[in-house]
Structures are given as C-alpha cells and as structure tokens.
C-alpha cells in the first residue's frame, strides 16, 4: 500500500521529543550538583515536581479528550524548571499544587502546548509564591560544605535560617556579603560553581551556561535572548545598581540569582518567546530591565521569574510588530 500525502516527503530528523529531551539532559547537571550543595531533598522535590507535572499533563489531556503526549517531555521540562526556581527547604509536596496550576490552568485550559501565553513553570512558581509566601521566600538552605558560615545573623535554631546573596545584598549591602564569602574573588568563584544559597537549580552559573551553550550549539535556541537578557541585566545594574550612576557591579548581578537559568532555559521557551531576532533582542532586554527594576526597587530581592512572566504577554504583540521581511510582498498589502 503506497502512502499518498502532500509534499515534502522527507522531514528533518528533528522532533519535538528530541528537542525537549535534549533540554532535559542539559538541565540535569545543575540538579546533580544541587544534591551535593543542598542535600538529597532537592532531588526529592524535583522528582515530585516532575512526576506531578507529568501526571497533571496526563490527567488534563484525558479530561479534555486530547491525545496524551506526556512522552514528548514538555511536562518534564516544566516540572524540572518549576523545581529549579523554588527554595530547597520547602516541604516536598509543595510542587504538586504548582503543577496543577502550571499544567492544567496555564497550559491546557488555554489550548495545550503552543497556546500558553505564560511560561507554565513560572506560573507554577508565581502561584506557589502567592500561596506559600513564607516558605517560598525563606526556606533557603545553606550549602552543606560550609553551612555554618551561611547561618545568617546570629544563632540559627533550625536549618532554615539563611538568606540568599541577593537578599543580603539588598538589605545589608555588599559588605555583609563579603563577610560571608571572604573576598570578592571568592564570591565570584563560588557563584560560578554554585556554592551559595539559592533556588534548587539556579546556583551554578557555570553548569547552566554549559547547558545553554550546548543548546545553542545544537541550534535549539539562538543566542539572542540569553545574550540580551544577560547583557541588559549587567548594563542596567552597572548604571543603576551602585550608589552613584555607573558604579554597579554587573558581574555580581549576572552571577547571582537566576539570571543564567532564566536567560538560557526559561526566557527561551519557544511558546512564550518571540521568534524573530529583533523581537528576541527586545524581549530579552525587557526581561533584563524588569529584573533589575524588581531587584533594585521592587519588593523581592530577585526578579528574573517575574520579569519573564511580565514580558510573556508582550510576545504576541512583538511577533506582530516584527515579522520576517517578506521576499516579495504583494503590492498594496
């Protein structure tokens, strides 16, 4: 029996599954590292998050009478990313609620993959922030290696009493941060490797950078968004982050918080980012500017997640403004 279908009759070897699973693989090293930094509970939280996202995906698709596509890995990515942006000290059942919000409400109610306006993982996180504000803003764990140093301010009674570097920076200044780490170069190197308090997957700038570069090498993402996010965070921090204009510390700004995770893995989500290069640059620059705005003037010490969420709804408009140049546009159109 011969198949008859419309041309083209050959397809590229790429597929959604391949892309998604490659991203998953690129995301794994920071998770493995986080087990060494914060302990096994990060693995448990991530596992719960991934499992609940996959389950939520299956149930939502079943409920809405759609083909079940849990094998394509997109729910796994959502689960991983959501786990990566929550503090390591939260109770491990917390991601389950986030998964329902992220997968069912933010993704499948809006029409499933491809139609979600907001990054589901970040919606899940924003939901958790709103629901468990205390846990989500204070359940930081000190890195295991030198836990004692990171017990912030006085005698901690339980383990959950440290603060993220950005928090220390915002409320106590760079001096306090230096005190924790010893020297500026120690700060940079520890931040690069990931040996600092923070969300589960955001600490290691180096591993995230490697994963992101691999994705760029595989051409799954382009350089535009990551570069424009990182550059604009650095630029705006440099301009506004110091006591006077042009005295901020851009290197510290991009190494701290979730800049690399956001720039390489969240802002580049296909569905919720524009696809044209100029639009990507604007999108990334907007994320960077909003990140710095929230960090410096906002109520939270870290703003990458909200910055991405705030730029997401601009994507349809950006795509409308920046369309590819037509080879031969119809006259009068």
């Amino acid at each position: 029996m011969l198949t008859v279908s419309v041309s083209p009759h050959i397809k590229s070897g790429e597929s959604v599954e391949k892309i998604m699973w490659t991203v998953v693989v690129c995301l794994l090293p920071p998770l493995i590292l986080s087990v060494f930094i914060f302990g096994v509970q990060t693995l448990i939280i991530s596992a719960v998050s991934v499992a609940s996202c996959v389950a939520a995906e299956a149930v939502s698709q079943k409920l809405l009478h759609r083909p079940i596509t849990i094998k394509d890995g997109s729910a796994v990515i959502t689960g991983l990313l959501m786990a990566y942006v929550i503090p390591p000290g939260v109770p491990c059942w917390i991601p389950i609620l986030g998964a329902v919000m992220a997968i069912y409400v933010a993704k499948h109610l809006l029409g499933g993959i491809g139609f979600n306006i907001f990054n589901p993982a970040l919606i899940g996180r924003a939901f958790l922030m709103a629901t468990f504000p205390v846990a989500m803003t204070s359940a930081w764990l000190p890195p295991i290696r030198d836990a004692a140093v990171f017990k912030y301010m006085g005698s901690g009674i339980d383990a959950v009493s440290t603060a993220t570097p950005l928090y220390v920076l915002k409320h106590y200044g760079i001096g306090a941060l230096m005190e924790k780490f010893g020297s500026m170069s120690a700060i940079y190197s520890d931040f690069l490797v990931g040996w600092r308090p923070g969300c589960i997957g955001e600490t290691s700038a180096l591993l995230l950078l490697l994963g992101g570069l691999f994705l760029i090498y595989k051409r799954y993402i382009t350089w535009h968004i990551p570069v424009s996010v990182i550059v604009s965070v650095a630029f705006f921090t440099w301009v506004f982050g110091g006591e006077k204009f042009f005295t901020g510390n851009p290197l510290l700004a991009i190494l701290s918080g979730g800049v690399f995770l956001g720039a390489f893995f969240m802002a580049t989500d296909y569905v919720t980012s524009p696809s044209q290069a100029p639009a990507k640059l604007i999108f990334g620059a907007g994320i960077g500017a909003l990140t710095v705005l929230i960090r410096l003037k906002g109520g939270y010490p870290e703003g990458v997640c909200y910055a991405i969420l705030l730029m997401n709804p601009l994507v349809p408009a950006l795509e409308g403004w920046f369309r590819p140049k037509r080879f031969a546009p119809q006259k009068g159109a």
Partner: peptide, 27 residues
C-alpha cells in the same frame, strides 16, 4: 526515508520562519 510520524500542535519554535525563503509565517 520518509517520516510518517503523526503531527502535533505547533510549539512556536519559529523554525519554519527561518526556513521560509519567502519570509512568510507558515506557523
């Protein structure tokens, strides 16, 4: 040689925009 896998929903990757020689929006 052919790829007869079933198709899914558009994930807005924009690869078709990069591929289109006429600058159209296939997605």
């Amino acid at each position: 040689e052919i790829d007869a896998r079933p198709y899914g929903q558009c994930i807005r990757c924009g690869w078709c925009l990069d591929a289109c020689p006429m600058g159209l929006l296939p997605n």
